[in-house]
């Protein structure tokens, strides 16, 4: 188990859910309630120094109880090390704490997650749609139930060519 994972596990044993290393990349799954604290820990801890928030994105798993997954890719310039944090969010309580206070770069990234997946970020300074028009009300494009073509009416036609 690498040092980063160990530090997270020691500091927040309750929030730590699982750890996985595959393709040379480490992924840590955590409870969403502690996302801000864990991010703060690995950013400020002198031996870790994950000072760059490379990316924030989200994935939709429509058949699971905790439907959405918010994924954070972090990078430490000093140690040339990467880590991926994941937190699950349910559809009913579709919100997670914002990390804009730690990384200003997270501002646009979180806005995009909100815009595309409809996940709210608590304490975000300016949570508006970013790529879609501000008055867009047809849902969140990257959710799996959002149709790719038109409004989905194409699929509702019966196939009349049979028999």
């Amino acid at each position: 188990m690498n040092q980063t994972v160990q530090k997270i596990k020691e500091a927040y044993p309750d929030a730590f859910l699982s750890e996985k290393t595959a393709f040379g990349e480490t992924t840590v799954e955590i409870e969403k309630a502690k996302i801000f604290d864990i991010c703060k820990l690995i950013r400020d801890e002198s031996s870790l120094r994950f000072d760059m928030m490379t990316d924030i994105c989200s994935v939709d798993f429509p058949n699971e109880t905790l439907r959405f997954e918010v994924i954070y890719q972090l990078y430490s310039i000093e140690n040339n090390r990467r880590i991926r944090l994941k937190a699950r969010v349910s559809e009913d309580d579709c919100r997670i704490d914002s990390v804009v206070k730690l990384w200003q770069g997270a501002n646009f990234l979180e806005r995009e997650v909100y815009d595309m997946m409809g996940i709210h970020f608590n304490n975000h300074p300016d949570l508006r749609r970013i790529l879609m028009p501000e008055d867009y009300d047809e849902g969140f494009p990257l959710r799996k139930d959002f149709p790719v073509e038109g409004r989905g009416w194409r699929d509702q036609f019966e196939n009349l060519s049979e028999d």
Partner: peptide, 8 residues
């Protein structure tokens, strides 16, 4: 410092 913080 800001450049890193903004993810540039």
């Amino acid at each position: 410092e800001d450049a890193v913080n903004f993810g540039l």
